[in-house]
Design a protein around this nucleic acid. Structure first.
Length: 429
RNA sequence: GGGCAGGUGCCAGAGUGGUUAAAUGGGCCUGACUGUAAAUCAGGUGCGAAAGCUACGGUGGUUCGAAUCCGCCCCUGCCCA
């Protein structure tokens, strides 16, 4: 069972405010005006936003930090806005990029946004009242106001507040200038994002923007714009950019992103991703990606060595429950137990399964089957990996990969490497 | 608009007529060891059973043969205007 939003109930009981909670959990790398923000939180409902770039048809694990920050604030009774960057994605943020971003079409961005919507609903409450008196979350798309902008008025009303000297001195732009250069569209990204913040400040009373630390410059640009244009007071808060203990970007698995869309990353694989994190990362991830109370986290991670696996299991369970719901957790756990609890039990219904027709199966070699299951990329790879002893079929090491596929039953359990399983099911008719 | 330097595999970066599916490094994958961890050591890393095919910005040539030479085009960086 996942434990509800208890870290926050606990924090509130201790009189801890949102800012200190976020700090304690490790979300805070930098805040523009901590005292002012603390006061704002204490005085009333604060509206805060995080922008999400819809350049892919799903959010991935890297976006979860932003959602967790919004979700935490909402549980404190504040008001989150998830902003789909339908307009900004057309511009392309040069931050942290060594080369110009691929251009994504407007239609693609729109369809991506639609597909992403339900993912927010798992983290945020769009109805309101789910955690006491919290206000409903809001989902907006900046294309709605950015695409209408007129160039000359924008330059005159917004552009005048930006100093080119200052922008050129900024880390993001400077590194790009020194390496691959920067085109004008990218140079404008900061203005556009700052304008978003101003727009939300005006229309929604939004006073806080959060994001990853690579967004610091863009976010504070918005804070300054709000001050210069409207004399308003707004805040910036950024979280550290997460890398795993081995230095990889968080949320990558086998070089691929871990997606929140179950079509792109099955809930089983999602669960497995969290089970497989490094020992050194568990505490931090529990704090950032779950709402488990601090005391429990400390207890769980007091263990050393193999004992940490229980903490990882809890992590996987909690994170998967948030992303996919409790049913998905149960299924993923059942499959994991079946596959990793001693001798793999191929009969468990929850093991991810690829179906092929009897007709197809009759014409396939063993290598083909591994390809179809998505475990290897090509027959050539299947062959190489078989030589290395990495392929297993129903518990037997595969020696000859070019032989016809003749399973002993309708179901066959494939395994690639130590821990990647997929069942092949032959269906008739 | 002018001058110069470039565009190579996931990334960085060699190669400047054949023996180059393309050095080297990183990344990634696998094996052994293990705890579905880390570290370490070893192997692999375009597709194809093979013949062969595809690949060095695009395109058209030269040549028995081109990533390598020539023409045109596109793109990037630097300098000048």
């Amino acid at each position: 069972m996942p434990i509800a939003a208890d870290a926050i109930t606990e924090a509130r009981a201790q009189g801890l405010g949102p800012l200190d909670y976020l700090r304690q959990r490790g979300y805070v790398q930098d805040v523009s005006d901590p005292e002012g923000l603390r006061r704002a939180f204490a005085e009333g409902v604060v509206t805060a936003y995080v922008g999400f770039d819809p350049t892919a048809p799903s959010l991935h694990a890297g976006h979860m930090l932003g959602m967790m920050m919004l979700a935490s604030l909402q549980r404190f009774g504040h008001r989150p806005i998830a902003l789909g960057g339908g307009g900004t994605a057309l511009v392309g943020d040069p931050s942290g990029k060594t080369s110009t971003r691929a251009i994504v079409s407007e239609a693609e961005i729109r369809s991506n946004l639609e597909r992403i919507l339900p993912q927010f609903a798992r983290y945020l409450d769009f109805e309101g009242g789910r955690w006491g008196g919290n206000p409903p979350a809001l989902l907006l798309n900046n294309a709605d106001w950015l695409l209408e902008l007129r160039y000359i008025p924008f330059l005159r009303d917004i552009g005048r507040y930006f100093s080119v000297n200052e922008m050129l001195a900024a880390e993001t732009y400077r590194t790009r200038l020194e390496s691959t250069g920067l085109n004008f569209v990218e140079f404008n990204y900061r203005l556009v994002q700052a304008y978003d913040f101003l727009h939300l400040f005006r229309t929604e009373g939004c006073a806080l923007q959060m994001g990853g630390s690579d967004q610091w410059g863009n976010i504070t640009a918005g804070v300054e714009l709000i001050r210069k244009a409207d004399g308003g007071h707004a805040f910036a808060l950024v979280c550290p950019l997460l890398t795993t203990a081995s230095g990889e970007k968080m949320g990558k698995s086998e070089g691929n992103s871990v997606w929140l869309d179950p079509e792109l990353t099955t809930p089983y694989d999602f669960y497995q991703y969290w089970i497989n994190v490094d020992d050194a990362d568990v505490v931090r991830l529990l704090r950032l990606y779950t709402f488990l109370p601090e005391k429990l986290i400390v207890e769980l991670t007091a263990a050393t060595g193999e004992g940490l696996r229980e903490a990882k299991r809890t992590l996987a369970r909690e994170v998967t429950a948030l992303a996919h719901g409790q049913d998905a957790v149960d299924a993923a756990e059942a499959a994991s137990r079946a596959l990793f609890g001693g001798a793999p039990d191929a009969d468990d219904p929850n093991i991810p399964t690829t179906e092929i027709s009897a007709g197809q199966a009759a014409e396939m070699t063993v290598a083909d089957v591994f390809v179809v299951a998505g475990l290897v990329a090509s027959r050539g790879e299947a062959r190489r990996k078989a030589v290395e002893g990495a392929l297993w079929l129903d518990g037997e090491r595969v020696a000859e990969v070019d032989e016809p596929f003749r399973p002993g039953a309708a179901d066959a359990l494939l395994r690639f490497g130590k821990k990647r399983y997929r069942r092949i099911r032959i269906v008739f008719g």
